[in-house]
């Protein structure tokens, strides 16, 4: 060896090659964004050219006659997701409060662990469980109960010569086997509970202990400390957690598809079947026979993507503004 140090000469070329390689890989993410945009936009341009806004506002979906109106899916997605959020958010946030503020210390780790496990269960397994366990239970006990209590209230009340519909409408109509908007919303709620809980927990944990100590110093009870010092401090972040959960709910596919009934119909009753954007893609994409049909489904994908991206960006923004650093992958 000519060099007594036996070292190989420094090589700037390898460094440059490695750096370029890594750069290209990092650009992969940007390529993916362009790719998604190109595929969805390119694939659905025809549909928007042909149907225009009627594609979004039309409520008739019949591939056989070539009429494509996506409103029932948009309706189904929004209703099921918002309903799911309404069910999940209070439960999840209370749980997060319990975990960070009120629970005995030795209970906290096991509970957190179980919630992490909940979030690891694949969607299709929730769906399977929902079909065979949850639906029979809902349709045999819960739905009739709702129908006979809330649903039995007056469906509308007269007010200045108008008939104003009441929430009783939501719980009227036949309950069938349980394949319904409400079932879809419940299974989505179960699936977004872990994420809202864990993000909320991160947010509550990021409240400085100084806040709590100040309130304790005033002689506040544990709940008062939580309410005054912690919740008021974390309000924004908890809202962000909810929006993040909503984003997740909108894109939920398999479990909803398995229980929502898959009927493109807009109905006020939560007991009647519905359909979501993600479900219609899941069910019909592989069987789309005509180009129009396929393009309409891609357009639905575009709508779904647009809605979730906007909601997710809002959530990120709110979380950033609330000053909580929440982990990367949600």
């Amino acid at each position: 060896m000519s060099d007594p140090k036996q070292m190989r000469p420094a090589s700037r070329a390898r460094d440059a090659v490695f750096q370029w390689f890594c750069f290209l890989m990092a650009c992969g993410v940007l390529v993916l964004i362009v790719l998604v945009g190109y595929v969805l936009w390119g694939g659905s341009a025809d549909v928007f050219r042909k149907f225009g806004w009627k594609f979004l506002t039309g409520s008739d979906w019949d591939p056989n006659t070539g009429s494509f109106g996506a409103l029932p899916f948009i309706f189904g997605t929004l209703v099921s997701s918002l309903l799911a959020l309404a069910i999940a958010a209070p439960l999840a946030i209370s749980t997060a409060i319990y975990l960070t503020e009120l629970a005995p210390h030795r209970l906290r780790q096991p509970l957190v662990f179980m919630i992490e496990m909940l979030s690891a269960i694949p969607s299709v397994i929730y769906g399977l469980w929902a079909i065979f366990i949850m639906l029979p239970w809902l349709s045999q006990s819960v739905f009739p109960l709702l129908r006979h209590s809330l649903g039995a209230l007056p469906k509308s009340i007269p007010l200045f010569h108008h008939e104003i519909p009441t929430p009783a409408l939501l719980f009227s109509g036949p309950t069938g086997a349980g394949y319904s908007m409400l079932s879809g919303a419940i299974i989505i709620a179960v699936m977004i509970l872990p994420i809202i809980t864990s993000v909320s927990r991160e947010i509550l944990r990021s409240v400085p202990d100084l806040q709590r100590e100040a309130a304790y110093g005033l002689g506040a009870t544990r709940w008062e400390v939580t309410r005054i010092a912690v919740l008021s401090y974390a309000k924004k972040g908890l809202f962000g957690a909810m929006i993040l959960g909503l984003g997740r709910a909108l894109g939920e596919t398999m479990a909803v598809t398995m229980v929502i009934g898959n009927t493109p119909r807009i109905s006020p009753s939560l007991f009647s079947p519905g359909y979501t954007l993600a479900s219609v893609i899941a069910n019909e994409f592989a069987e789309a026979t005509s180009d129009d049909y396929l393009h309409a489904l891609v357009a639905i994908g575009l709508v779904l993507m647009a809605v979730t991206v906007v909601v997710n960006l809002c959530a990120q923004l709110i979380l950033k503004l609330s000053g909580t650093e929440v982990g990367a992958v949600r």
Partner: peptide
């Protein structure tokens, strides 16, 4: 890139099916 990755992480998984289908 980070923002891009965060956006992609929020994309519903079925959309990736559409992309792979198209490709």
């Amino acid at each position: 890139v980070r923002l891009g990755a965060d956006i992609l992480n929020g994309v519903p998984s079925i959309v990736w099916g559409i992309v792979a289908y198209a490709l």
